[in-house]
Simulated assay, not measured.
Amino acid sequence: MAAVSISLAFSVDPQRPNQTPAFAFSSSFPRNPFLFSGKSLRASLRIAFSPSSHSSSSSSSASTTTETGSYTFLEDSFRTGRFLSNEELEKLKTLEGFAYFQELESGSMWVRVMRPEDMDPTVKLLAESFSESMLLPTGYESVLRFLVKQYLSEKRGVMPHAVTLVGFFRRRPEACSDGDGVGEAEELAGTVEVCFDRRGANASPPSPIPPKDSPYVCNMTVKKPLRRRGIGWHLLKASEELISQMSSSKDVYLHCRMIDSAPFNMYRKAGYEVVKTDNILILLMLQRRKHLMCKKLPLCTDSPESVDMVAVDNELSSSSNA
Rank of each mutant, 00 (worst) to 15 (best):
S317E: 06
S58K: 09
C294Y: 00
L8Q: 14
S244D: 07
S318P: 00
I209L: 03
E87W: 05
K91N: 10
R156S: 06
L281M: 10
M266E: 07
V307Q: 00
R31I: 07
Q15H: 13
E105R: 13
L41Q: 13
F169E: 04
S63P: 00
P137I: 08
Y253F: 15
D13L: 05
R171W: 06
F10G: 15
Y267S: 08
R82P: 00
H234A: 00
N314Q: 12
P116W: 01
H291L: 09
E128W: 01
L242K: 12
S129G: 04
I259N: 13
E128Y: 01
L236R: 01
T80S: 06
M246N: 08
P121E: 10
A43N: 09
K212F: 02
P160Q: 10
E128Q: 11
T64S: 14
Y272R: 05
L292I: 06
H291K: 06
Y151V: 01
P173A: 08
L74Q: 08
L41I: 07
L316C: 09
G200Q: 02
V123W: 03
F73Q: 13
P298F: 10
P30Q: 11
M293G: 03
C176D: 12
V307N: 00
S249H: 14
S52R: 10
K149D: 07
D180K: 15
Y100G: 03
E184L: 13
M119I: 12
M309A: 10
E186S: 15
G81D: 03
T122F: 02
N314T: 06
A162V: 07
C218H: 09
F98T: 06
V163N: 03
G232K: 04
L254Y: 04
E174Q: 15
F10Y: 13
L292M: 09
S106Y: 05
A238Y: 06
